[in-house]
Design a protein around this nucleic acid. Structure first.
Length: 771
DNA sequence: AGAACGTTCATTTTT
DNA sequence: TGAACGTTCT
């Protein structure tokens, strides 16, 4: 029997409760077309299992079939299976594919990201921890607002401790499973103790706002399990089979959650690739996957090393790059695919030239735009690419970057909805208390805050009371305005269960004159119109969501949009557009034609990662991830010169290029409009970048751009180091002057160092030479 | 209270 | 280079 005998929709008409599910296909169906390793991974259902799944090794297919196998052959009920994915989109796709094999029962599976699943548990049981079931999820911007407030109150100057720094510290602590108390216990230095105080205060504020940040979703779940064993017991019993995808990117808290859930039945299957661990900055621990066999000594280990995605040449190049790493289990991907074309390689003059090269190659390739992807290391690189590609008339889509939900007008309206959903959300209320402007300035906001402190009330309660109070400061106009706002929010809060969320949104817009304010306040008509369109798009998005939801609830929608990731937001692929995204967003995807741009020292590997081996290895993994996305053709592109933070830098080709054997590479001249052909210079052997480096060097001695020309520079004083001049620092090494401040003895230079980034240098003390 | 100006910082990646 | 913030001015 083949899978086509039972179409995916066959079971859809059958109610979930009805036991008359279509006759289960025989086991061969699930295993058909799988290689021996995949088969073993699918059928090995008892005990811990580690599947080391190389890039393009058919991992998703294996997971889907395993779930089907568990249900059909191992007698598991769908609700006993808990599958963790890295993105919500992956979760949705997985559920769909399982549904194609087992039908409607798939809707009873627990599939989701750690964050989404934890949020679900916390909504149910959060009251045990003091949160309501409607708690709000704060994103990093909300975190920073709250922390800024706290720092202000503690009279800690921005120069001493930045909110962003504190946020990173707290995040890191949470990823490691440290709550504010444990953090305080380990704090030894003055600064750590100060941070501990802030952490604690921050946590109290979150609770008062009925809010959790991303880290809390995980950490509070651990707390829930530890403090309330009956909940843990319940979950343990429920989740008899646990499956974790992208295990190499799990952090310490996630590790502990899994240990808590799986310690009894030990049916824990983790799937991952140590060579694709790229989220250490988010707390991911490579150790989790490297040590799995120690954590679970009875574990079965399966390696999937046959690649079904890329050509032999692409794979060979990627293998050589990743082979340089030490912290890895070690594996070699192989493929039965054709040998394929050589990797394309190009050095552009600057970032605009780089973008033009893309345009030419994309056109020449004659491919569908949807087949093409461009990967870069940092979001900032997308601006020029967008500009040039867009002007060339090539349709493109950007994954991640400046997000729709980050736009000011969207955040404003979301803040209204958040307060209506949960009146304790003080951060959101402060955002909208004077937006659109209603005469409530800093003083009045401060007065409301004063009013609140002392009482155990929410911020909206405080605002309402303040508005009608006889004392408490503030102008009469401000009080009236706050009173009106409170009435509006109260009213919509009271009716939130009887109104569709989109209706609530429309009423907010109508009552506040929000769109009118947008149109008046914008610099240009065009800008105003664009913002108005965004608002309309928000209403549409919400209305669309309502149609798909069985019980359209404002809180549920707010949670959904809080937990979507950049890859989640990717348009469906059928659109004929070139895809632009960061290397991080590219994980898990594949494209026939891939360009990796900005392959330069300092950018990729990034200058911030040059000083620690572990960081450098992660950059290398990132490179490996990017390369293994390509099915048929891969281009690697670098620039000789690039503008960075206002200064123009001359970069060397990335060290990763040096790892690729010369014979796998073909140097592209970029067509007639490009720089002179380098091909001749590559006659010899050696690695690609050795040649590339030579080429770059040759070019560097050629006439340079206006910014770096020394001709117009005065000979003495501060003029000795004009903007754009290259310098060498005794400690920081080579760099470029980005700005000059002050004069005479007091002159300070802003220098971008190749390996250390931006630094401010006092000319009086610095050991600096011009070169 | 709100606009306009100046200063400062950042760019590594994001659930 | 540019956004985001804080200060000053109206």
């Amino acid at each position: 029997m083949t899978s086509s005998t039972i179409p995916p929709w066959a079971a859809l008409d059958i109610p979930t409760e009805t036991p008359t599910i279509p006759a289960p296909p025989v086991a061969a169906d699930i295993l058909a077309g799988l290689n021996p390793g995949q088969r073993q991974a699918v059928t090995c259902t008892a005990g811990p299992l580690l599947v080391l799944a190389g890039a393009g090794s058919g991992k998703t297919r294996m997971i889907v079939n395993r779930i089907a196998w568990l249900i059909r052959e191992a007698g598991a009920a769908p609700e006993e299976i808990f599958a963790v994915t890295f993105t919500n989109k992956a979760a949705g796709e997985m559920r769909e594919r399982v549904a194609g094999m087992i039908g409607m029962a798939a809707s009873r599976l627990w599939i989701g990201t750690f964050h989404a699943t934890c949020a679900r548990l916390l909504r149910r049981h959060g009251s045990l921890l003091g949160y309501s079931e409607r708690f709000i999820i704060y994103d990093d911007k909300d975190q920073i607002s709250l922390l800024k407030e706290i720092l202000r109150e503690m009279n800690i100057a921005d120069a001493v401790l930045r909110a962003e720094t504190v946020r990173a510290v707290i995040d890191d602590a949470k990823n490691k499973g440290r709550d504010s108390r444990r953090f305080a216990d380990r704090a030894a230095t003055f600064q750590d103790k100060q941070l501990a105080t802030i952490y604690q205060l921050y946590q109290e504020r979150l609770l008062a706002c009925d809010a959790m940040d991303f880290g809390d979703l995980l950490l509070q779940t651990v707390r829930l399990f530890t403090d309330h064993p009956e909940v843990l017991e319940d979950c343990r019993r429920r989740f008899r089979y646990i499956l974790v995808d992208e295990y190499q990117d799990t952090n310490e808290v996630q590790y502990r959650l899994l240990a808590l859930l799986a310690s009894e039945h030990r049916n824990l299957c983790v799937v991952g690739d140590d060579d694709q661990s790229i989220y250490s900055w988010r707390g991911a621990r490579l150790k989790n996957i490297l040590d799995f066999e120690e954590d679970y000594p009875e574990a079965t280990v399966i390696r999937l090393e046959e690649n079904y995605r890329s050509t032999q040449k692409i794979l060979a190049a990627a293998n050589r790059v990743i082979a340089q790493n030490r912290e890895r289990k070690g594996k070699d991907l192989w493929t039965r695919n054709p040998e394929g074309e050589l990797l394309g390689f190009h050095i552009a003059a600057d970032e605009y030239d780089e973008a033009r090269f893309l345009v030419r190659q994309i056109r020449e390739s004659g491919r569908d735009y949807a087949d093409v992807a461009v990967f870069y290391r940092t979001n900032a690189q997308s601006r020029v690419l967008e500009e040039v590609i867009g002007q060339a008339g090539i349709p493109y889509t950007i994954v991640g970057g400046f997000r729709f939900y980050d736009r000011a007008e969207i955040k404003d309206l979301l803040a209204y909805l958040k307060v209506i959903n949960n009146p304790r959300d003080a951060v959101s209320l402060q955002r909208i208390i004077n937006t659109p402007p209603r005469g409530v300035g800093k003083k009045s906001v401060e007065a409301v805050r004063q009013w609140q402190s002392g009482e155990e009330t929410g911020f909206l309660d405080a605002a309402r009371e303040w508005a009608v109070s006889a004392v408490g400061g503030g102008t009469a106009a401000a009080r009236r305005a706050v009173g009106e706002l409170a009435t509006l929010l109260d009213d919509l809060h009271a009716r939130r269960d009887n109104l569709l969320p989109s209706e609530i949104l429309k009423q907010v817009i109508a009552a506040t004159g929000y769109v009118d304010w947008l149109l008046e306040g914008s610099e240009s008509r065009h800008q105003g119109e664009s913002k108005k369109e965004n608002v309309e798009e928000l209403i549409n998005a919400l209305a669309t969501w309502e149609q798909g939801a069985d019980a359209p609830d404002l809180g549920a929608w707010l949670e959904d949009i809080a937990l979507v990731s950049a890859p989640d937001r990717r348009d469906d692929d059928h659109l004929a557009r070139v895809t632009l995204m960061t290397l991080h967003s590219a994980k898990g995807l594949e494209f026939p034609l891939v360009f990796m741009v900005g392959m330069e020292e300092g950018l990729f590997p990034n200058r911030n990662c040059l000083h620690r081996d572990a960081d450098l290895e992660e950059e290398r993994r990132l490179c490996y991830v990017g390369m293994t996305r390509a099915r048929e053709k891969l281009y690697l592109v670098a620039c000789r010169s690039r503008r960075f933070q206002g200064a123009r830098l001359d970069n060397k080709p990335s060290r990763f290029l040096f790892d690729i054997p010369r014979e796998l590479i073909e140097v592209e001249t970029g067509g007639s409009a490009g720089p002179p052909p380098y091909r001749r210079r590559f006659a010899g052997g050696g690695s690609a970048a050795a040649s590339a480096g030579a080429a770059a060097k040759v070019r560097q001695s050629a006439p340079s751009t206006a910014e770096t020309t020394a001709a117009s520079v005065p000979a003495a004083g501060r003029g000795a180091y004009p903007v754009g001049s290259k310098v060498e620092h005794g400690v920081f090494g080579p760099g470029v002057v980005a700005a000059v401040e002050g004069a005479g003895d007091d002159t300070k230079l802003v220098v971008i160092f190749r390996d250390r980034g931006r630094k401010k240098i006092s000319l009086r003390y610095a050991r600096l030479t011009r070169c």
